[in-house]
Amino acid sequence: MAEQFIHQQHAHCESGVTSNLLKHSGIALSEPMTFGIGAGIFFGHLPFVKVSGIPGTTFRIWPGYIFKRVTQRLGLKIHTEKFSNEAKAMEALDQALARNIPVGMIAGVYYLNYLPEAFRFHFNAHNLVVYGKENGQYLVSDPILEGTSQIGYDDLARARFAKGFPEPKGKMYYITEAPDTIDLAKGIKDGIKQTCFFMSSPPVPWFGINAIYTLANKIEKYPEKLTPRQCTLYLGNIIRMQEEIGTGGGGFRFLYAAFLQEAAQYLSHNELGKLSERCTKMGDQWRNFAYSAARICKARESDLVSYKELSALLRGIGDTEKQFFKDLKAVRFS
């Protein structure tokens, strides 16, 4: 593992980090494959978890999950560690770097001063790789960026110990051992199975397909329950989670469609190819939803009709995705 780490840009931070770390360990796996095998796609709406007074919406699985599952499914050995204080966390990082190991970590976006201000909110589930240290500056491979960056000790320490929800607690991770051969077919199958479970099975209204309907119900009532300003901020937040950065567009649906397409080719599986096309259409539906939501925000309308229409649009997405994941679950692998 002595050679230089190669930075490559990706759409999503965690699948990007995972793909780049795998490549460094001699396993070439595209971002879509990483995302699919790691069961990265999701939907969640948590009305009671508020950030800046706005209820949380997510299109992805919780942080750290993709790296853990991909390495587990493909038989790689990994090391992960959390820390009680900044000094210990930074020392452990320095030690790993001294051994020439590129280190993945979870960081709070607010403290990453190499990012433009526009993106620097308190979002604590960002993933990046630190692959070296030069003149006291850490060399950063942030997969959402085209090139590499640098960050100083203090800022990186702050980012690794960002407070709020969730708290990274200095979490870092790296690959310790990679096998010579991997069972990609099994990884694909297990990843798909898990995604179907997460999307279809949770018997609560906040996760999976159910959450899409929950959000649709909430949106319908926005104009009655919220001030016009809150309405637009709530809708704006959904748009940001879906499109602003790191999703590849359409709330990860295009990225997942790319995975299904690649999986179909790898397994010569026609059915997965057809499902990929349907998943692309789901992404288009989400884009259309975001477009309509933005129109309401811009017009600063709070009339009931437009919110009802938006809510109906979202229910339509729920219906499509419900059927999609049902059919995906029914796919037989030889």
Partner: peptide, 18 residues
Amino acid sequence: GKSQIHKLMYATKEDGSY
């Protein structure tokens, strides 16, 4: 500074491939 970032998107070509 939003324009400093050119994020990566996934889209389909004419033949449907990503």
